[in-house]
Design a protein around this nucleic acid. Structure first.
Lengths: 333, 333
DNA sequence: GTGAAAGCGCTAACAG
DNA sequence: CTGTTAGCGCTTTCAC
């Protein structure tokens, strides 16, 4: 039925070992035999069985990627970075969505391990002890992508979210705003917390007191942005400026404000986070923190390949650079 | 080192076959032995090796998904639909980006087949004979998702793109527009062609002649939308209405027009295609064709499971419903 | 209800 | 440079 390495060997008049060698590009094969084997492979239409190879070699050249939600622009970009580098290094990706659900995450890690992936790329919210236990329950290397492990046991790739939020807030304050509001996600994730801390740090540095009315905690969606800005703009003492922890929410903020008759940036300056493609797909265009999502994915995967090759890795905790990009949503005339 | 089914058998004092039975939920095991086995599995921390299982059973419970670009919103939604149903049926997904590059596509199909996937979900542009040859070079079932096979040999899931474009154009004409422009992708894909045909059909039905100046052929990006509308609005005789073959381009069109000082919809009505989340993340909100991307993915995967289970499938060519949603970008005061 | 044994298709020493 | 021979860890008849 399906043709195997054995058939090729028989037809070519060589041993399975030799066929295996030519298939795997082993140089120790006489050119003539190589050609002979290649020809009969071609003739028989032989296709190596990667499962059998995986069982014999204990390498599957596939890595597992656990991601909260591939339909989020943020993670889709990240995934693309992962996949491109994986392809470059001849790995395939088993992709699974976790919805940041802990049970699902744990369960997925297990499945990946059962499938004998050579490595795991994990994107999630909080890393608990259980996560660590599960992730280290086998010797498969793991890299966290845009995800913090506060116990510092698992390699990771991130930007400095606190610093980024600090700089964004500072930027806004230095533009002359003394009432910067902050809208962020209520997911209780270290990343959200860091952003909040960065915001507070900037406020403190300029001796502003924290105004609880100016801090809105919603989910990371566009609609939440609209809701949040409504809340803010219905305050007696309204903010003139808001730092929003994601671009998608920020678009909601811009539109929510505009729908209420406010002008951005004249009545309300808006600053985002991530620099997804959305940031330029809005009027006014959105000033934001540039977070290199694609690169985070790419660097994560690259790091993972190093672990899979047993290369020595100097820095297990990679911080990628971020920057501010100023567009029209904060540019006062 | 790693513990195997053999270890469990020995420790539990049963045969490998019995362990295999309990692991696979085979009912023909006495409850007491089942418990005994389960306990030692727990105690030893046994994790079944899916690769070995795959080799022995010739089933991997993984399917390959070949997708043009996961970072496109359209495909990200589709992928999410695929993944959710896959999870439901206990399949994992090997996800790979093809960038609609034929060589890459062919190559990916081969890789998936080598990895012994139980099925393939293919999303692409054009299906050539080579694609079909490659896709059918093994007995693995294949389903095309949002992709046409004009030779009609491979099952597929789509909406009726021609009809959708026809209805959109007709809708615009019936609103009183006698000069509907059309912006679409130059990817020479059947889908793009169908959209163009739908547009032409509507025009013909109302006895409008095709104005080549009103047909702009660019790539499917936001920036292309901007470029395209500039071109249209620099015409001596400008259109008052434009049907755009994707939401992302349509946003570009709206903003491009606004940036030039035109008002949407007063000076230019804009109609999109797909109803991605973007359609409501713009002002004015975008009237568009609702294409159920998530459902296309979900139905494709469901269909594939049927083939993988050798269930009989009545309809191999599934057309999902679409509809028009009217928002503010075409709502004249 | 349970066990023995033969593979699944390939790689990886080890010889020669 | 090439062949022989064990496995890799599990499923699957076939007996009992």
């Amino acid at each position: 039925m399906t043709i195997t390495i054995y058939d090729v060997a028989r037809e070519a008049g060589v041993s399975m070992a030799t066929v295996s060698r030519v298939v795997n590009g082993n140089p120790n094969v006489k050119p003539t035999t190589r050609k002979k084997v290649l020809d009969t492979i071609e003739r028989l239409g032989y296709r190596p069985n990667a499962v059998a190879r995986g069982l014999a070699s204990k390498k599957t050249t596939t890595v597992g990627a656990i991601i909260p939600d591939i339909s989020s622009m943020f993670f889709a970009d990240l995934a693309r970075g992962i996949e491109d580098i994986a392809t470059m290094y001849k790995y395939n990706i088993i992709l699974a969505n976790s919805d940041r659900n802990k049970d699902k995450e744990l369960q997925l890690i297990n499945t990946m391990l059962e499938k004998q992936v050579d490595g795991i790329l994990f994107m999630g919210g909080e890393i608990t002890e259980e996560h660590i236990r599960q992730l280290t329950s086998s010797s498969v290397p793991v890299v966290l992508s845009s995800t913090y492990d506060e116990t510092n046991t698992i390699p990771s790739v991130n930007i400095d979210n606190k610093k980024a939020a600090y700089e964004a807030t500072k930027f806004l304050i230095e533009q002359g705003n003394n009432n910067v509001a902050f809208i962020y996600g209520h997911d209780e994730t270290p990343i959200s917390r860091f952003k909040f801390e960065g915001y507070k740090q900037a406020l403190a540095e300029f001796n502003f007191t924290l105004n609880q009315d100016f801090i809105v905690n919603v989910d990371y969606s566009y609609d939440s942005g609209i809701k949040a800005v409504r809340q803010l703009l219905s305050l007696d003492r309204k903010p003139t400026c808001v730092f929003v922890a994601s671009d998608e929410m920020a678009l909601g903020v811009i539109h929510g404000a505009q729908d209420m008759g406010y002008r951005v940036p004249e009545d309300l300056e808006v600053f985002g986070f991530n620099n997804t493609r959305l940031a330029t797909m809005v009027r006014p265009t959105l000033s934001t923190i540039v977070q290199p999502m694609y690169d985070i994915g790419a660097v994560s995967m690259r790091l993972l390949t190093k672990f899979m090759n047993n290369e020595t890795v100097e820095e297990k905790k990679i911080i990628l650079p971020h920057r501010i990009i100023e567009r029209d949503s904060t540019k006062l005339p």
